[in-house]
Amino acid sequence: MAPITDTVAVAPPANRTGAHPAWVGLRRLLAHPAGLVAFIVVLGLVACALFAPWIAPYDPVKIAPRIRFQGPSWEHWLGTDQLGRDVLSRVIYGTGVALKVALSGTLAALLIGATLGIVGGLSRGSVDGALLLLCDAMRSLPLILFALAIVAIYGPSLATLIAIIAFSMAPGYFRVVRNQVLVLRSMDFVAASQSMGASLPRIALTHLVPNLLGPIIVLIAMDIPAVIGIESGLSFLGQGIQPPDPSWGSMLSDGYSFIRQAPHLAIAAGLPVIVSTVAFTFLGEALRDVLDPKSSRGRG
């Protein structure tokens, strides 16, 4: 063992000292090429969703029978649909619907899944076993059949859609959070906390939740495309967002019906689905790289 005498003397670079990990993470995300592009696209989508009434050139539900099936022009950049509605405006308003469903559905799923995951991981034993069984039972249901059954019972609406998404995504969050809790509770800092006499809720709030945030953020970003897919799929089947509200899925369905007369309809509705899915997936992968503790170890 060669003595290394400078261990105490060497301090981390001063400018990094005390920087909150979230800021460090954001800085590194913007330095990540795919992460930067994905982040900008996602910001753009969010802007479209928030400022749709100011961005969209026309009213998305205003019918104009005289200008049906028009191709792209200077007046209507993406043309008009079978009822003469402006496609660009409908795509922009559809962004809001898609993101609203995706975010609220994912957050509801996260809330349910993470809470049960922490409970299961901390309690182990029979409670954990019952939750696991429930989770596996949920996952064994074919998603579309489950969704169609729920819609058949409660009728198609935004709330039904969000509930379906929450219940179908929650088992995934449960699994990830529970396994992460099992890993964390075997760590010495949790044992240290227990040796101080900390209660389980206290350990969950001070040690588990902060350490779970990284993997959860990645999981959310990765799941949003799937949720957008579910919303589009159900709307395509006519069981999601109901007309005349604009939704990418129902627009895609209309475009599909008129694909010979007006192919621009299907393309205009399909592109945002593809772009948002790819952007969120890349964002998730970039976040995974950036938040990986191994990559943060060296650079702090």
Partner: peptide, 21 residues
Amino acid sequence: MAALDPRMRLAASITEPLAVN
């Protein structure tokens, strides 16, 4: 290193027993 929560500032780690009490 394993006994310190990687997401906790050192001041909070050191005084955790005080917080528990």
